[in-house]
Design a protein around this nucleic acid. Structure first.
Lengths: 257, 257
DNA sequence: CGTTACTCTGTACACCGTACAGGATACACA
DNA sequence: TGTGTATCCTGTACGGTGTACAGAGTAACG
């Protein structure tokens, strides 16, 4: 359930919020705000971390801040912009250690790991859309940092962006799948093994192995190996190697390295 | 917004529905159902195709069938199971041409294209979760067909499953991104170019290019090349080459080919 | 000191999935 | 043939969502 992100509403207002420009209530007239934007955003992030993105409702955020729901709209134009601010905040908190002296594979793998850690600490991030990202300081710093991993590899600017997008898209897809697995185990009250045990026999009866020989052989082998129909960890490890090899084919065709 | 899928409720009931087992109202007592399950599912699919997944509500599906909303619950245990049936239905309609005589790259690329076509005809499919897929005839046929592309490449069963999962995950992520771009252009009343034109200058003022030199250089180059912040077509073409190269490194390490 | 801009709040609306109870229907069986 | 009963269909209702709107209170400006 990727929740809606800003893109609606006034882009200028959204940018001003992201960069914390003083605007809006700068005239000073009227009562001061009882909370700060950062308190609102941090509360929402904590709520999302502990209770999931679907728990981030204007009413619940307001309740956590001990404020009436409609008061939030004096801090933020709407929920979409709040999500933008949440995203940029967690982006800003990511580590930015310099990897310049390491070989390119290690650099790229480090970027992947940093993002994997982000999705582990904030699983809800995997569920929100990242086309048209929130152009705040958090994203800019992240983008700058991550692009550097692709420096001096013989790629042109457009290819650098594409390579990074490709890498991040893989990590996000893996994290999304992992989050979906966790969610399905949580709200179905039966874990993967139980589900597999309950569905396997029924499935064998309904579909016969003679009609889908490859599928039943491979599916059974994979299911037994992973202890369920899908293993996020294995999929990430397997996929990351392919991603690195795929980028390697491009990079090594450009520079001897 | 990946909507919830079954996994809740009785797995046996769901499987019986997917395989169209006669069960449930088989006793014949009472009035006959005025619609068929297929009518319900097909109506929901059409609704999703033309108006998006968020338009698929029990009320709207019922209205399209000229039936009271609660009547749907005599055909289907709930919305999650309806989604399972929708998914399996569109899976069943995918082409299954035999690619056995073509080289492996062409086979794998054909699988990618078939899925890309699926996501183009039914954009909502990209938004629903595929861990714990609906184990119906549609999915089984698809799985069987797609696994064959990885036959005789020296991969063991677990690797075949992982390779296919990796490929499909890429295509789905690309389709998701494409759908999100379309959605953001649709509901924000401004297309990517307008958004870029509106945000570019503001962004340049807020963030300065000296602080994010790589980001602004690369971002500008990519934005100008794609006519916006993200080009789904370019990302797909770029990514598919990397995916094939990455799988190639694995495959060619197993068999001389 | 009055005006005015601003914060905060309660109420209300349209929508969602679906639990529940009751009426209509048509087969199974005495 | 009459009756019991399983099933279909329906209307109403509940708790949830984001947020539009109107009003009350507050503090700085002219």
């Amino acid at each position: 359930m990727p929740t809606d992100r800003s893109s609606a509403g006034d882009p200028a207002r959204t940018l001003a919020l992201l960069w914390r420009e003083p605007g809006h209530g700068a005239s000073g007239r009227g009562p001061k705000q009882g909370r700060t934007i950062d308190e609102v955003v941090n509360t929402a992030v904590e709520l999302a971390d502990t209770a999931g993105l679907e728990a981030v409702t204007m009413r619940r955020v307001a309740q956590a801040l001990d404020v009436a729901p409609m008061s939030l709209y004096t801090y933020v134009p709407g929920k979409a912009e709040l999500l933008d601010l949440m995203l940029d905040t967690v982006y800003a908190q990511m580590p930015r250690a310099d990897h310049a002296d390491r070989p390119w594979r290690a650099r790229v793998e480090a970027i992947a790991e940093e993002n994997r850690a982000l999705f582990e600490r904030h699983p809800w991030v995997a569920a929100v859309s990242t086309v048209r990202p929130p152009l705040g300081p958090g994203l800019m710093g992240k983008y700058e940092h991550e692009l550097r991993a692709f420096n001096a590899l013989g790629l042109d600017d457009v290819e650098m962006d594409a390579a990074l997008t490709y890498l991040l898209s893989f990590v996000q897809a893996a994290a999304r799948a992992a989050a979906e697995v966790r969610a399905s185990q949580h709200d179905s009250a039966m874990n993967d093994e139980e589900w597999w045990a309950a569905n396997g026999p029924l499935l064998a009866k309904a579909s016969d192995a003679t009609k889908y020989p490859t599928a039943s052989r491979v599916g059974t082998a994979a299911g037994e190996t992973h202890g369920g129909p899908y293993s996020p960890d294995y999929a990430y490890a397997f996929g990351l190697r392919r991603v690195l090899d795929g980028l390697g084919a491009l990079i090594e065709s450009r520079v001897g390295d």
